[in-house]
Design a protein around this nucleic acid. Sequence first.
DNA 1: TATATACTATACCGTTCTGTATACTTTAAT
DNA 2: ATTAAAGTATACAGAACGGTATAGTATATA
Lengths: 187, 187
Amino acid sequence: MSALKDKILVVATDLFHTRGINSTGVDTIVAVAGTTKMTLYKYFHTKEELILEVLQTSQQGFQTWLDEKLSTTSKKPSDKIQQLFDYIEVWVNSPEFIGVGFIKASAEFPNEENPIHQLSSRQSREFRQFIARLANEASIKDADGLALQLSLLFEGAVQAEQMKRGSGAIKYAKKAAKILIDGAIKN
Amino acid sequence: MSALKDKILVVATDLFHTRGINSTGVDTIVAVAGTTKMTLYKYFHTKEELILEVLQTSQQGFQTWLDEKLSTTSKKPSDKIQQLFDYIEVWVNSPEFIGVGFIKASAEFPNEENPIHQLSSRQSREFRQFIARLANEASIKDADGLALQLSLLFEGAVQAEQMKRGSGAIKYAKKAAKILIDGAIKN
DNA sequence: TATATACTATACCGTTCTGTATACTTTAAT
DNA sequence: ATTAAAGTATACAGAACGGTATAGTATATA
C-alpha cells in the first residue's frame, strides 16, 4: 500500500471520529494529510469508498488486536470470555482509543439501504458473533443470548465513554459482564 | 405554541432520525412541513436552535411518559426499578418509536464544546440520575453503579434496535437488567 | 375601514461540498 | 537518456448548504 494512501486513511479515521463523518470534508482531509484531492481520488473513487475503507481497517485492526491478546494469554476456553472485557477496558483506556467506527457511522447514516449503514450493521453483527463463539467454547447454554447482552454493554459503554471521557463506564460494564457471564455459566 | 412551529418540530424530529441531522437541510424540512424558510426562521433563529429544541422536546416527552407510567401503575418503590425496562420495552416496540435523540446527536456532534453535544451529554446524565433515584428509593446500596449499568444496557439496546429493527435486543436487555437488579438488591 | 399579525412566494447571497480538468514536477526503473 | 508512474498545484464546475431580502396575501381584531 502506498504511504500516502495509508496516511489519508489514518488522517480520515481521526477526523471522522473527532469532527464527525459528514462534517469532515475531503478538502480538510487532504490538507491535514499533506496531499491533494487528486491523490485522494486516485486511491478512493468517492468519499463513500473512503468511509467504507476507514470503517473496515479500523474494525479489522481492533479484531486482530483482540484475537491476538485472547489467543496468547489465556489457554482455557472458559477463561477467554471472562477476559474479554479486561482487554476491552485496556483498549478503551489506551491513548490511541478514539471510538468505535460502526457505532458512529450507523448513527450518521440511519438509512438501512445506505452501504455505510449496511457495513456498520454487519460489523456489529460480526462482533456479536465473535462473542457468541467465545461463549460457545466456554460451554454456555444460551450463548447467543449472552453474546447479545455483552455486546449491549460494550456498545453502551463505548457510547458513554464517547459522550464523556473518563466516565468510568467501562469499569462498570466489566462488572456487569462478570455477573451476566457467571449467571449464564451456572444454568 | 403556533401550529406551524409545532409541525416544523414534528417534521424535523422525524427527518433527523430517519435521514440524520447533518444530512437534513432546512429546505427539506420546510418542504415536508408544508411551509417556507421565512416561517421556520421566525420561530428558530438558526438550525442549531431547531436541533436543540427538537432534542429537548423529544426527551421531555419520553421522560413525562415514563414518569406517568411508573407513578400510576406501581406503588412500591422497589417495584419501580424492576418495571423500568418493562416500560422501555413497550416504548421501543411502539410504532411511534424512532430512536433516542441524544444518542444520535452526540455521535453527529462529537466536539465537546458544541452546544448540541453538551445538551446530549446532559440528557444522558439526567436519565442516568433518574434511574439512580429509582435505585435509591428501592434501597439499593450502590445505586449510582447500578444506574450506570442499566443506562449502558438501555443505550446499547436502543443503538442495536436502531441498527436493525426487531433485533430483540431490548428483550435481552430486560433480562440482563433483572439479573443486575437482583444482584444489587441482595448486597 | 384601518392596522397588526401570520404566513407565503421567490429570488438571492456567500460559502462549502464532492468531484474533475489541466498542466507541471519529481522519482525511479529500464 | 527515456519513459512510466506518482504526486503537486490550482482552478473550476455544479449542486447543496444556511440564512436573508423583498414583496405580497390572508385573516382577525379594533
